[in-house]
Design a protein around this nucleic acid. Structure first.
Lengths: 194, 194
DNA sequence: GGGGCACCTGAACAGTTGTTCAATGGGGTG
DNA sequence: CACCCCATTGAACAACTGTTCAGGTGCCCC
């Protein structure tokens, strides 16, 4: 019927598209061709299901970032990663937003355990950006006095900011332009008091 | 009892803190010390109330940006604006997030008119950042070949990205550091193909 | 003081939500 | 064939939601 992985994938898709509260257990059951109650034999509650979706999502994005960190040409790999994540085609436009950020906007309705999972996921994503920063610095592409923690955090800031405009904007060329600006700034001067 | 402005302020606060769906009409009525039904003498529906909250919010942030655009020292004004908006004290930490972005994460549950108001509000905010960019360029602080539209959009990207980390991070000094980085990049080189 | 108007009240409605649970059915084992 | 185990079922529950409305209240103007 449906193994656990496809169940998680479909649930991830729905939560990503509509958000946590707007996605009902019945929506998920319908998408999986199950009857009400069946989901509860595999997941204790909606909250626990969402928790696993968050973990699942964070693993994927972390893998994506660590893969980029392995590439030879770090700058080009960074550019490609940004482009691929930000310029999702029209039918997947909802994926231009970040599921974790959307979840944070609804954090007041999350149970404690799901909120913790969300914090962990954010930390894991940051860790991925720091891995990318380490790779860039090892290739001598950056100013070496700035800490990789700062650079990783900065990359995440750029990523988050760009995701929003990429979601709203109707002009993908602009997004590419801002990615190029980002790559210039990445290699440029950083404040001293860090 | 409660004039329309304080009603809007309180509603804005609740929507900002908890989100659209998580805030019930009963929450708002309770915060205003009203009984169920009273709100409907002033607002047709929850959707219309939220619509006005969005307009109200957008006006405030636009005013804030246009005020910064009038200052003599544009760079310092920009810096102060970012600091003031991003480093809200602990008891108002929820204001570090952007109400408009949170609303966009829940856009699947918004009625058409509220969704339009949200689009307008986003456009208005962008217009504010462009006004700021115009002011900076008139003060000869920036490279003059880059269009003010691009610079305004870029400022908004930085603002959105920083808001998220400012909300999550427990270290305000980092935020100031990234604001300084932003001011360096603002005056630095921009890609040519714009 | 009387009339009208705007507001407020609070019970009630219909719809949706997450969740439960007794009944069901099918597949494997003796 | 008879037995048992376990996932599935789908009806039902309680809580919550936005919203309505007939009746009450208080205020202002004539």
């Amino acid at each position: 019927m449906s193994d656990r992985t496809t169940m998680l994938n479909i649930a991830t898709d729905l939560f990503w598209r509509k958000g946590y509260q707007a996605t009902s257990m019945r929506d998920i059951q319908q998408a999986l061709d199950l009857r009400p109650g069946s989901l509860y034999s595999r997941f204790q509650s909606k909250s626990e299901l969402f928790e696993q979706v968050i973990v699942h999502y964070a693993e994927q994005i972390l893998a994506r970032l660590e893969q980029s960190a392995l590439e030879k040409d770090g700058l080009e790999a960074t550019r490609q990663m940004f482009i691929q994540e930000l310029l999702k085609p029209e039918e997947q436009r909802y994926q231009r937003q970040c599921l974790l950020l959307n979840a944070m906007a609804e954090s007041s309705k999350l149970e404690d355990r799901a909120a913790e999972a969300l914090d962990d996921a954010m930390a894991k994503m940051l860790q991925g950006f720091i891995a990318l920063a380490i790779s860039l610095q090892q290739q001598n592409l950056l100013c070496s006095v700035t800490s990789v923690d700062k650079i990783g955090q900065w990359l995440q800031i750029q990523f988050v900011g760009l995701r929003n405009t990429a979601f709203v904007s109707r002009n993908d060329e602009d997004i590419v332009y801002f990615i190029d600006k980002l790559l210039i700034d990445l290699q440029h001067q950083w404040p001293h008091n860090g």
